[in-house]
Each structure stands twice: as C-alpha cells, then as structure tokens.
Simulated scan of single mutants.
Amino acid sequence: MAGSSRWVVIAGIATGLALFAMSGREGEQTTPAPASAVVPKRIDIPALKLKAPLMKLGLSTEGDVELPPYDKPGMAGWYTGSAVPGDRGASVIIGHVDTKTAPAVFYRLRELRKGQLVRVLRSDGRTAEYRVDSVERIPKSDFPAERVYTEDGLRLITCGGSFDWARHEYRDNVIVYASPAGSDPRA
C-alpha cells in the first residue's frame, strides 16, 4: 500500500461524510464509547492460515484513515470510526498487501472465497465470526465508501491490482465483504 495517502485521504473524507450522515438519522442516538470499551484484538482467517494482531487506527490530522506501520507488516488495524466486530454496524479492518521487501498481513486476502470463515477475537473474550460474501477488486478512484462504511458486516481492505511505479502505489483496493456467521458459542 506504499504511496496510497491520496486515496486514503479520499476514503477518510468519504468516511467522515458517511458517518456524519449516519449520525443524523432520526431516532438514533450517537454516544461516544468510553476509553475502556471493547476492542478487537486479533483476526483469524483459517483458509489463509492467518492469525494477526490488531491495532487501533483512527484519522490523521489531515483526515486520512491511518494505516498500520510499515515496520510491522504482520499487523492489521481496526478503524476506530467503525463498529467493533460482533456489534451492529460496519466493522473495517485494514492491512498492507506488502512492503518494499516482503509480503504483508493481507498479501493473500484476494484468495478468500464466498462462505469462508473470518474470526475476530475481542478484548471481552468473545469471538465475532463472519462468512465471506464476496471479494472485490476496485480502482481506488472508485472506492465504495458508502458500502464499506455504512452497511452492516465486516470489511477487510488492502491494496491490489497492478502497481503504478510512477506514483509508488497500487491502483486498486481489494475489499472482502463478510456477514455475521452467528453468535459466539462461548457467550
């Protein structure tokens, strides 16, 4: 995802607008979560043999969605402006496809198929389970912000497609859409 800050800015602006629009819905109240609220801790994708820790990602002072640090390629991040996985709403997890020297956490994300399982372990000990509905590769210029940030379910996002050497970034995003698979059997 090297050099993708321009598209991250666009996604951040779109996210802010979508969240602002959602906050004005009649009959809904928006209350900020307390600092000690439940957070996702790890993502497990059995089909990819992937287990990765999650960090919190917010918005930068420029309004960009933050990305996980490149020096931690095995880590993905949960966007704190989205729902906690397992709660109602859109949950967004972002990870790099690669670094300058090696594959990163979501390198194989494009290989997921409909029906495969994604688990997110939470700080409250619960596990949110999702089934993949679809995997899409879309130009960054056509990023589907409303679908990603407002529709219920889990969204996994990374870069993909061909690499634009002049801009030092991938031209597309790979987005996995997943729906809840049911309740946590341990709950």
Rank of each mutant, 00 (worst) to 15 (best):
R25E: 14
A47F: 12
P85K: 03
G74D: 14
P40N: 10
P139E: 11
E66P: 10
L112N: 05
D44T: 08
A47S: 15
L48R: 09
D164K: 04
G74F: 09
N173Q: 04
R25Y: 12
G95I: 10
G115N: 06
R171C: 00
T30S: 12
K140W: 14
L156Y: 05
A76L: 00
I93N: 06
P69K: 14
R186H: 09
R171Q: 11
I175E: 06
V174L: 03
E66V: 01
P144Y: 01
M55N: 05
A76N: 00
F163E: 02
V39I: 14
L48H: 10
E169A: 11
P185V: 03
I93E: 10
G86T: 13
E146Y: 14
H96F: 07
Y149H: 14
P40Q: 08
E129C: 00
R167Y: 03
D142M: 05
P68N: 05
F20V: 04
V97Y: 12
N173L: 01
R110D: 10
F143P: 06
V84S: 08
P32W: 07
E28I: 09
S82E: 07
A181W: 03
W78D: 00
R25M: 08
M55I: 15
L50H: 14
E62T: 13
I157S: 04
R119W: 02
T101D: 12
E26Q: 01
Q29T: 14
H168V: 15
D64I: 02
V38P: 04
S91V: 13
R119A: 04
V120S: 01
S183D: 11
R155V: 14
R126F: 04
L67W: 10
Q29K: 02
Y177S: 11
N173P: 07
V132N: 06
S91C: 12
G86W: 09
E129K: 01
G12C: 03
P85M: 01
P73W: 03
P103N: 07
E151L: 08
A33P: 06
M75N: 07
F106K: 11
A187R: 15
G182T: 02
I45K: 15
Q29W: 15
S82G: 13
V38I: 11
R110K: 13
G24K: 07
V8D: 10
P46W: 07
R171S: 09
